[in-house]
């Protein structure tokens, strides 16, 4: 394996759901990569396909259908793996942290047993006592006070923040090389969010795991991520280094997201939410899916779908007129 090969390579991923109203193209040609040890933020409005993309990596989209694309992990096509091999990767080399810690843990099994299960599923030789000790260690590592006592408690005896800590302990239990966190703080109290994000950072440093951090909060991306992937209507519309994307965005949607951010140097009434709303994924508009809301849209955008293409060093955009943004985007957008 060469050093330049990415850890995770999602290429032209498409996932569909058959519903009563028709086929929902939840993910429609998404491509991005994650390198070893880096933190990649995935941003986009709600419904842009972030969760479905994340879930597809481990093959956890139950009712949906993979309509195309490949997901390679360390060069292996995850979609083509036999079920048993995929299971050994789930929770082993790739671990997930879900959005809602209130429902993501089994209510009738103690926290300790749920962590022990994660450990023993991936190390059949691990004795019960040793697994228990390791689980308590993990709970202590994620900042759980009185870990040995907490080990025996049930999820309902934990606060939301503590449950998410337990989820993180479970996710890092087997030393994953990729951690997927799907909006890990969205369901938590604002005061707890920062703590859990800090913990995520600690966990990442501890395990050296690459992290795919899904969020709709650009501030979180700015603070934690090395690179950012911007999704819109099931596609990746821009990806690149965080500083580059934030200072020199090359997609009008990214520009819109950045302008809608509340900032200290701007009055609240200067907020510019992107007008309009995301398109229906049942019948996405032809051409560029952003064209109904795009201030730069013109005829070509309505017919020709813009491919994701390089617009700079390790910087990609799916806009026909990405280069025009270099002139249009005022320096005001800088951090």
């Amino acid at each position: 394996m060469t050093q330049s090969e990415p850890l995770l390579e999602v290429d032209d991923l498409a996932v569909e759901f058959r519903t009563d109203e028709g086929v929902v193209k939840a993910v429609d040609g998404a491509s991005f990569t994650v390198d070893r040890g880096e933190i990649v933020g995935v941003v986009g409005e709600s419904g842009s396909g972030k969760s479905v993309t994340a879930m597809s990596i481990l093959g956890l989209v139950k009712s949906g259908r993979r309509a195309g694309g490949t997901i390679r992990f360390r060069g292996r096509d995850l979609g083509a793996l036999p079920a048993k091999e995929l299971r050994s990767i789930r929770g082993g080399e790739i671990a997930m942290i879900f959005q809602d810690p209130m429902t993501a843990l089994n209510p009738v099994v103690t926290i300790g047993r749920q962590i022990v299960e994660a450990l023993r599923l991936h190390d059949k030789k691990l004795a019960k006592g040793a697994a228990r000790d390791r689980a308590i260690e993990l709970l202590a590592l994620v900042g759980m006070p009185d870990a040995a006592a907490r080990f025996r408690q049930y999820p309902h005896e934990f606060s939301g923040g503590m449950r998410q800590r337990a989820m993180i302990a479970m996710a890092i239990a087997n030393g994953p090389s990729l951690l997927i966190a799907d909006e890990p703080t969205t369901a938590l109290d604002v005061t707890i969010q920062a703590q859990v994000l800090d913990l995520l950072k600690v966990a990442q440093q501890e395990t050296q795991a690459a992290t795919l951090l899904i969020t709709h909060d650009l501030g979180v991306v700015a603070e934690l991520a090395d690179r950012v992937v911007v999704m819109y209507a099931g596609r990746v519309v821009e990806q690149g280094d965080v500083i580059t994307v934030f200072t020199e965005p090359r997609h009008p949607y990214t520009v819109g997201l950045l302008e809608s951010l509340p900032r200290l140097d701007r009055d609240v009434d200067e907020l510019h939410p992107i007008p309009g709303s995301p398109p229906s994924l049942l019948a996405p508009p032809p051409g560029c899916p952003f064209h109904p809301r795009c201030p730069l849209a013109r005829d070509r955008c309505r017919t020709e779908r813009p491919p994701l293409r390089a617009v700079g060093a390790a910087h990609h955009s799916a806009c026909h007129f990405a280069e025009e943004l270099a002139a249009v985007v005022p320096t005001e957008v800088t951090r």
Partner: peptide, 9 residues
Amino acid sequence: YVRTAEAKG
């Protein structure tokens, strides 16, 4: 939580 159990392997 069922999805979590699957994600654990």
